[in-house]
Amino acid sequence: MQINTVETIETLGTIAFAISGTFAAMQRRLDPFGVLIIAFVTSIGGGTVRDLLIGDTPVAWMRDVNYCLLILLTSIATIFFKTHIKKFKVTLFLFDSIGLGLFTMLGIQKGIMFGLSPGICVALGTITGCFGGVIRDTLLNTIPLIFHKEIYATACILGGILYYGLKYFNLTDDAATVIVIAFIFVLRIIVVRYKLALPKFVY
């Protein structure tokens, strides 16, 4: 995948998760500073954990202040436009799902750049997609979605498997990436719409 495509995915994913983090914080009626903090950790949490695991330090947002500025501007814009958005929960869900797909692919591509095996790349994609939300929900005193019966991390894993399946059939990187992002987004919508879930273990 070309570098500019990776940068585009990272920018769009950062915006999507900044919006979802902002809405999650506003739902809990945090003050403006609290909202900005939640937006920030939602956007950079997964990527920070990923970069620390593979030793790519200082992590991306420390090397490029533009990430921080992008999150700040996105969060402020979201706060100002909140009066025009009636269904906070739906908006949060949609942007969280978009960010999940974008950051999953970003994590996979980062693993490929470091020459890691497909299984590890899929794991990095899952971490990148999910852990910002885990940190966000933990700070907001909510059980993270990844620990619910609802399909969340599983969507990242299935998306990663699909990516390598498409590459096996010689699909271009860009086409495979778009398909996987769309797959994860649509899968999340279907799962929530029809209340699909993994089985629970009862002791």
Score class of each variant (00 low, 15 high):
residue 157 I to W: 00
residue 162 L to R: 02
residue 138 T to A: 11
residue 142 T to D: 01
residue 139 L to E: 02
residue 145 L to C: 14
residue 147 F to A: 09
residue 133 G to K: 00
residue 143 I to V: 15
residue 144 P to W: 02
residue 139 L to N: 02
residue 161 I to Y: 07
residue 148 H to I: 08
residue 140 L to V: 09
residue 148 H to E: 06
residue 132 G to C: 04
residue 162 L to V: 03
residue 142 T to K: 04
residue 154 T to A: 05
residue 142 T to P: 03
residue 142 T to A: 10
residue 157 I to R: 03
residue 145 L to W: 05
residue 159 G to N: 06
residue 147 F to H: 06
residue 139 L to I: 00
residue 135 I to V: 10
residue 148 H to Y: 01
residue 141 N to P: 13
residue 150 E to H: 05
residue 161 I to L: 11
residue 146 I to E: 14
residue 145 L to R: 06
residue 159 G to C: 15
residue 143 I to W: 01
residue 149 K to D: 10
residue 160 G to K: 01
residue 160 G to Q: 14
residue 140 L to T: 12
residue 133 G to T: 13
residue 159 G to A: 15
residue 140 L to I: 01
residue 132 G to K: 02
residue 144 P to R: 00
residue 150 E to C: 08
residue 134 V to P: 02
residue 156 C to W: 01
residue 149 K to G: 12
residue 130 C to Y: 12
residue 134 V to N: 09
residue 132 G to I: 07
residue 151 I to C: 00
residue 154 T to R: 08
residue 143 I to F: 05
residue 137 D to S: 04
residue 162 L to C: 13
residue 135 I to M: 09
residue 156 C to L: 05
residue 138 T to L: 05
residue 129 G to F: 07
residue 156 C to Q: 06
residue 145 L to Y: 05
residue 133 G to H: 00
residue 134 V to R: 00
residue 156 C to V: 09
residue 157 I to V: 12
residue 146 I to M: 12
residue 152 Y to R: 04
residue 141 N to S: 14
residue 136 R to I: 06
residue 133 G to L: 13
residue 129 G to P: 08
residue 147 F to K: 00
residue 140 L to P: 09
residue 154 T to I: 02
residue 129 G to M: 09
residue 144 P to E: 08
residue 137 D to Y: 03
residue 139 L to P: 08
residue 153 A to I: 09
residue 147 F to I: 11
residue 159 G to R: 07
residue 161 I to R: 15
residue 143 I to R: 12
residue 140 L to A: 08
residue 140 L to D: 02
residue 151 I to G: 00
residue 145 L to T: 09
residue 136 R to G: 12
residue 145 L to V: 11
residue 160 G to L: 08
residue 161 I to C: 02
residue 129 G to A: 15
residue 137 D to L: 03
residue 148 H to P: 12
residue 147 F to T: 13
residue 133 G to W: 00
residue 157 I to S: 00
residue 134 V to L: 09
residue 139 L to W: 06
residue 131 F to P: 08
residue 157 I to G: 01
residue 138 T to P: 01
residue 138 T to D: 03
residue 147 F to R: 02
residue 141 N to M: 14
residue 150 E to A: 14
residue 157 I to P: 10
residue 136 R to P: 07
residue 135 I to A: 06
residue 130 C to K: 10
residue 152 Y to D: 01
residue 132 G to M: 04
residue 157 I to Y: 01
residue 156 C to Y: 04
residue 155 A to W: 03
residue 161 I to F: 08
residue 142 T to V: 14
residue 151 I to V: 05
residue 142 T to G: 04
residue 151 I to N: 04
residue 159 G to Y: 06
residue 152 Y to G: 07
residue 161 I to G: 06
residue 156 C to T: 13
residue 130 C to R: 10
residue 138 T to R: 03
residue 149 K to W: 04
residue 141 N to T: 10
residue 150 E to Q: 07
residue 157 I to H: 00
residue 137 D to I: 01
residue 148 H to C: 02
residue 152 Y to T: 10
residue 150 E to M: 07
residue 131 F to E: 08
residue 143 I to C: 05
residue 161 I to N: 05
residue 150 E to S: 13
residue 160 G to R: 11
residue 129 G to I: 01
residue 130 C to Q: 15
residue 142 T to F: 03
residue 162 L to S: 05
residue 146 I to A: 14
residue 139 L to V: 00
residue 141 N to V: 13
residue 145 L to N: 15
